[in-house]
Simulated assay, not measured.
Amino acid sequence: MSERKVLNKYYPPDFDPCKIPKLKLPKDRQYVVRLMAPFNMRCKTCGEYIYKGKKFNARKETVMNELYMGLPIFRFYIKCTRCLAEITFKTDPENTDYAMEHGATRNFQAEKLLEEEEKRIVQDREEEELNNPMKVLENRTKDSKMEMEVLENLQELKELNQRQAQVDFEGMIDRYSDFEKREKEREKEEDERETKEMLDRALVKRLRDSDSDSEKEEEDSSGSQAKKPSTDKPTDILTTLKPTEALGSSAGGVKKAKVETWERSVGTLGGKGALGLLVVRKKPAATFLKPRPVAAASAPTSQTDSKASTTDSKNASKPVTTQNGSSSLSLLGAYSDSDSNDSE
């Protein structure tokens, strides 16, 4: 089985490589390569920023008559992404970097400038020391002073580290945490005390308001009771009087029992209840005194007559009552009941 890709070529027996013509190409010929921007740059034509790492299809060529320790230097051509202006930069093997040539400006790089400044200072110092031995001595004294200062600073740093090493950081943290807990407890107690005081003030105010409301209600109820009689039960309208002890010698025990049953069921009409206000009492009839014979009497008899006349006038103004103290109107029902019973 033959190979898929034939790598071996057939050379005929009469093959002579010297007879092959050499292809002559220019040394500064250009190749198309794919590369990335080696640094941040800005186009001079349109001001477009081209950042490091941007990919381009560039043309590469070898710089003629420029070598660094036998190493060739290459130049690259790219185009701006906005205005298509040509930008060129080349390799810098001396500084292991790239150098900007044309079409753009390299953005500021502090690190590179600092390195260049340090190199320049070192070169100037070496040049001075070569021609001036006193300068060498001055530089050595400055270096020794600098070393002494550095050692002193190191010693101070060591002492500070030792002091900090003796400090108990865990204990400090524990004390601080305890202090925070106490502060939180104190704040909590203050909040509770304030809320308790506020609740007490609100309770006192509520009690005062309730007392004032109850006083007003009592005053209103007392006024309403004075205006309207209270009626707890429907039968309270009919007020009762005390049962009579005796109606007289002629009525007997039967009439007394009938009066008691009437008073228990209906009540007396001469009481001070609601029906008592509706019943109008009969005015007592005027009593006429019989004329007494005028006789010659002494002063004491005249005094007794005057007293009797005053008592008779007082009795005439009062309503006629029975022996047990009840009025005649209160016995009206009893008399009517007795008549009905007698007729039966």
Rank of each mutant, 00 (worst) to 15 (best):
Y176D: 14
Y176S: 15
Y176W: 13
S177Q: 07
D178Q: 15
F179K: 15
F179W: 09
F179P: 03
K181H: 12
K181R: 15
R182C: 04
E183N: 14
R186G: 06
R186C: 04
R186N: 12
E187M: 09
E187T: 08
E187Y: 02
K188R: 14
E189P: 02
E192Q: 13
E192P: 00
R193V: 04
R193Y: 07
E194C: 11
E194V: 06
T195S: 14
T195P: 03
T195C: 13
T195F: 11
K196H: 13
K196G: 08
E197N: 12
M198Q: 12
M198N: 12
L199I: 08
L199C: 07
D200Q: 15
D200Y: 09
R201P: 00
A202D: 11
A202Y: 01
A202C: 01
L203I: 09
L203C: 03
L203V: 07
L203M: 14
L203T: 11
K205E: 06
K205G: 03
K205L: 01
K205V: 05
R206S: 06
R206D: 03
D209F: 01
D209K: 05
D209H: 08
D209L: 04
S210L: 06
D211R: 13
D213W: 04
D213S: 12
D213C: 04
S214K: 15
K216V: 08
E218W: 06
E219C: 08
E219K: 15
D220P: 09
D220T: 11
G223M: 13
S224G: 13
S224A: 15
A226M: 13
K227W: 09
K227E: 15
K228I: 10
S230G: 06
S230L: 11
T231L: 11
T231F: 13
D232L: 10
K233V: 01
K233A: 05
P234F: 07
T235S: 10
D236Y: 01
D236P: 02
I237T: 06
I237H: 15
L238D: 04
T239S: 09
T240Y: 01
T240M: 07
L241C: 03
K242H: 10
E245H: 07
A246D: 14
A246N: 15
L247A: 01
G248C: 01
G248I: 00
S250L: 05
A251F: 04
A251H: 08
V254S: 05
K255I: 09
K255Y: 06
K255G: 14
K255N: 11
K255D: 13
K256R: 12
K256I: 01
A257Y: 02
A257L: 11
K258M: 08
K258Y: 10
V259E: 14
E260S: 01
T261H: 05
T261N: 08
E263C: 00
E263T: 00
R264P: 04
R264Y: 07
S265Y: 03
S265E: 11
V266M: 13
V266I: 10
G267F: 02
T268H: 09
L269R: 00
L269M: 05
G270K: 00
G271R: 03
G273I: 00
A274K: 09
A274I: 12
L275G: 04
L275N: 11
L275S: 02
G276R: 00
G276T: 00
G276I: 01
L277S: 05
L277G: 10
L278G: 01
